[in-house]
């Protein structure tokens, strides 16, 4: 009797576990719109070179041309 009750409980626990895990999966497959937008911005900025943090400085004339040459 007690064993039977235990197996019923075990079955219920198993079902709850399956439910919990599937809930996780469901949450995970929601499309992360904000993250995708951030990723897109990052890649577009690089491809179009929109935000050059270390933009190459215009080469300054380091040495004046020697007029004698």
């Amino acid at each position: 009797m007690n064993m039977h009750r235990n197996s019923v409980l075990a079955g219920a626990a198993m079902m709850a576990a399956v439910l919990a895990v599937s809930a996780c999966v469901t949450i995970n497959i929601y499309f992360p719109a904000a993250a995708a937008e951030k990723a897109a911005d990052h890649i577009i900025d690089e491809v179009w070179q929109l935000q050059q943090k270390d933009a190459p400085k215009k080469a300054e004339p380091a040495t004046e041309k020697d007029p004698t040459k």
Binding site: A20, V21, A23, C24, I27, N28, P32, A34, A35, A36, K38, A39, H42, I43
Partner: peptide, 17 residues
């Protein structure tokens, strides 16, 4: 464990690129 996992997934605010 399920709740922790869910929270972890949500904390990842970036896509792998």
């Amino acid at each position: 464990a399920a709740f922790l996992l869910t929270g972890f997934a949500h904390a990842q605010g970036n896509l792998e690129i």
